[in-house]
Design a protein around this nucleic acid. Structure first.
Lengths: 125, 125, 125, 125
DNA sequence: GTGGTCTAGACCACT
DNA sequence: GTGGTCTAGACCACC
C-alpha cells in the first residue's frame, strides 16, 4: 500500500505496482484518470520526476495512455483488469513456490504453513 | 545458486540468502566450511569484494564465524538450521499473503491458486 | 489531415504543414478562405488556441492573410503554390537522402529501395 | 551525425538513432562497448542523465545490454545489424513516399527529383 | 569508474 | 495546470 523508501526496489517501480494492485482490487477502473505527476508527488512525498518515471513505465507497458495536456488515464481496455490481476497473482505464486522449494520445504508443508497464516488476520483484523 | 544481476536486490544479499537456503535444504550443515571468497567469486563469476561483503553480512547476522587462517564456517549452533528455515519460510508466507491481499484476492482463492500450481512441476524437479 | 498527437513536432506546426500540403495538392488554392479557428478546432479535435497559433505562424510565413471580420485566406499570390511545393519537395528529398546516407546506404541502393516501394500501393490509394 | 538541440525531437532519441546509424554503417559492431554515459555526455556536451536515458531506451529496445559496473554493450546478436538497417531504411522510404504523396507529387516525378539530387554530392563531396 | 535512482528546479508545448 | 525534456548534482551498488 505504502512506498518503502528503504526497499532496494526502485520507488518508481513500486508506484507502478501500486497502480496495478489498485486496478486489480477494483479501486481503479479502465478509463479512470490518475492524478497528475505533481499531485501524486505531493501526496506520496516524492519528487515529481520520480512519479513521471513511474507513469512513463506504465505507458510503456500499455497500462495507461496519456492525452497531451489533459492527463494520464488507465487504458480503456476491458480485458486489462483480468490480465493484470492474473499476471500478478501468477507471479506471486510462482515466486512463493520457488522460495519454499529453495528452502527444501515440501509442497504439503508449504500448503499447511500457508493455511495456518492465511485465515489469521481475517478474524482479528 | 542463481544470482540475478538485474535484480534491484544487491548481489551480496542474494548471496547471503543462497547460503541460508542451502542450510535450510540441508546442503550445508552447522560447522561446515564455506569456500574462500576468492573461490566463491570464481564460481559465481562475481567480484571478490562482493563475496567478501556477503561474508561480512553473514558474520554480522551470526550465521557464520571466521577462524583466522582456517576460513569461514557455518556457526556450529544446532538450533541455527531450524531458526533460519522457519524465519525464511515465515517471511515468504507473509510476503505472499500480503501480495495476494494487495491484489484483492480472497484467502480461499489464494489457497486454490497455490494448490493448482504447487503440485505441478514436482515430479520433474 | 492526420495530426499525430504523440509526435514531438508541435501540433500547430503539423497544422501549418497540412495546409501547405493541401495547397501543393491543389485542394486549396490561392485566395481560398480557410475555416475559422473555432471551426478548424472542432474538425481536428484540437484546442482553438492551438489552431490560432498555427494561423499566426502561417501569416508570419506569408502563407495567409487575415481580413478583419471576413476570415483568413490563402494569400492570392500565383507563385505561392509552386514555391511551397518545390520547397517542401526539396526538403523531403534532402532529408531522405541524408537519412539513407546516414545508414551507409549507397545511392544506387537507395534508388532501388525507393522504386521497390514507390509503385506498390499506387493503384489502391 | 550531430545532435540538433533545436529539433523538436528529443535529444535522447536522437542519440538512440545515432547509435543505430553507426551500427548500420558498420562503425559499431555487435558486442562493442559503447562509451560510459559520463564520457558520452562530455563528448556530446549533454547532461549525463540525458545520455543515460538514451541508453535506457536502447536497452529497452533490445539494442544493447548492460553489465553491472562494466558498461553498456551492443547486443551480441548477429542479426541485429541487418534488422536495424532494414528497419530504419524502410521507415525512411515510407516517410519519404508519404511526404511526396502528401504533396500530390506523382511517383515518376518523385523518382526523377530524387535522382536529380542523389548523385550530386557524390562528385563534389 | 560504471550504471541506476532520486531530488530539485527550469523551460516548453498544449489545454 | 499537465505531461515531456533537460540540467545539475547527490548517493548507492558493483567492478
Amino acid at each position: 500500500m505504502e512506498l518503502d523508501f528503504n526497499s532496494p526496489k526502485p520507488i518508481y517501480l513500486q508506484m507502478v505496482d501500486e497502480v496495478k494492485k489498485a486496478l486489480a482490487r477494483g479501486e481503479l477502473s479502465p478509463g479512470d484518470k490518475i492524478p497528475s505527476h505533481k499531485e501524486r508527488a505531493h501526496i506520496s512525498k516524492v519528487n515529481p520526476n520520480t512519479v513521471q518515471r513511474a507513469y512513463q513505465e506504465m505507458e510503456r507497458e500499455g497500462l495507461t495512455e496519456t492525452l497531451r495536456g489533459q492527463g494520464t488515464f488507465i487504458k480503456n481496455d476491458p480485458t486489462l483488469l483480468v490480465q493484470i490481476r492474473s499476471e500478478m497473482a501468477q507471479a506471486a505464486v510462482k515466486n512463493f513456490i520457488e522460495e519454499m522449494r529453495g528452502l527444501g520445504i515440501e509442497p504439503e508443508e508449504t500448503e499447511r504453513i500457508l493455511r495456518s497464516q492465511l485465515y489469521k488476520g481475517n478474524e482479528g483484523g
